[in-house]
């Protein structure tokens, strides 16, 4: 059993496992079952969104015009690119090209920051316009008061509650992603023995793709807002 470990280099087999295959597969299943909970997590918000959109269809359609499609689209491209660089990082980790892996990881982190910066502009605009739900909510929105005049404030609050809850939760995931990716890059840079096993990169990759996946749904739901 230990030959595999020797053969594959310095990959560490923890004492509870028999061999590297078992360990890797365990990691994979563990990560996926964790992602199951993430799906359910976003699922609740998604369901609330769909339900209220179904109830206030026209209003939601009108309100969504306050969101900037271009920013959303750019962000989608950024996240897709980061996903691409992430798979490359996993690929390079598998074939042990450390420097290529590092640059792919750094590119991913850069994309994540880019995403956050654009989100920051979007959010700060909304905050200035008083669109944060709560006692200080300003309605009709200053951006387009004529169009929004017909929309009741409570529905608008609902829309923005859901908007901030879902994109906010997604944003938190991005920030967590940056922290994990940063740590990983640091370990790769320091040639730590921990990252000899490509599984760690692979798992972080799964997480990052999931973040991308969520955005793939959030983008059309909020920005393209099918009528």
């Amino acid at each position: 059993m230990a030959h595999d470990a020797a053969h594959l280099g310095k990959q560490q087999v923890y004492e509870q496992f028999e061999n590297i295959d078992q360990q890797n597969e365990s990691y994979l299943v563990g990560m996926w079952s964790f992602l199951v909970t993430e799906v359910m997590f976003f699922g609740v918000l998604l369901f609330s969104y769909v339900l209220y959109r179904w109830q206030y269809q026209d209003y939601f359609y009108t309100i969504h015009k306050l969101l900037d499609v271009n920013m959303g689209a750019v962000n989608t491209v950024i996240l897709l690119s980061s996903s691409y660089s992430m798979v490359l990082a996993v690929h390079f980790a598998q074939i042990k090209k450390r420097s290529a892996q590092l640059s792919a990881l750094l590119f991913t982190i850069g994309c994540a920051f880019g995403f956050l910066i654009i989100k920051y502009f979007e959010y700060s605009h909304k905050i200035h316009a008083g669109l944060v739900p709560g006692p200080k909510f300003v309605w009709p929105a200053v951006d387009n008061p004529e169009l929004m005049a017909n929309v009741p404030a409570s529905v608008a609050q609902m829309f923005f509650s859901l908007y901030f809850a879902m994109t906010g939760l997604h944003g938190i995931h991005v920030i967590v992603g940056i922290l994990i990716l940063g740590t990983l890059s640091f370990l790769v840079w320091r040639k730590s023995s921990l990252v000899e096993d490509y599984m760690i990169t692979e798992m972080i990759g799964l997480y990052w793709h999931f973040v991308d996946l969520v955005w793939i749904f959030l983008f059309p739901l909020f920005y393209l807002m099918p009528r």
């Binding site: 079952s33 199951v36 909970t37 993430e38 359910m40 997590f41 699922g43 609740v44 918000l45 609330s48 209220y52 206030y56 739900p133 709560g134 006692p135 009741p152 409570s154 529905v155 609050q157 609902m158 509650s161 859901l162 809850a165």
Partner: peptide
């Protein structure tokens, strides 16, 4: 695995609703 996240986020929404007075579950706010 399949259930707990649902209640977790639901309870979180109640907490947020309490703090910010937004209305995902409150009839006054739709």
């Amino acid at each position: 695995l399949l259930g707990t996240p649902v209640v977790a986020i639901t309870l979180a929404l109640v907490a947020v609703e309490r703090l910010l007075h937004i209305g995902v579950f409150s009839p006054e706010y739709g």
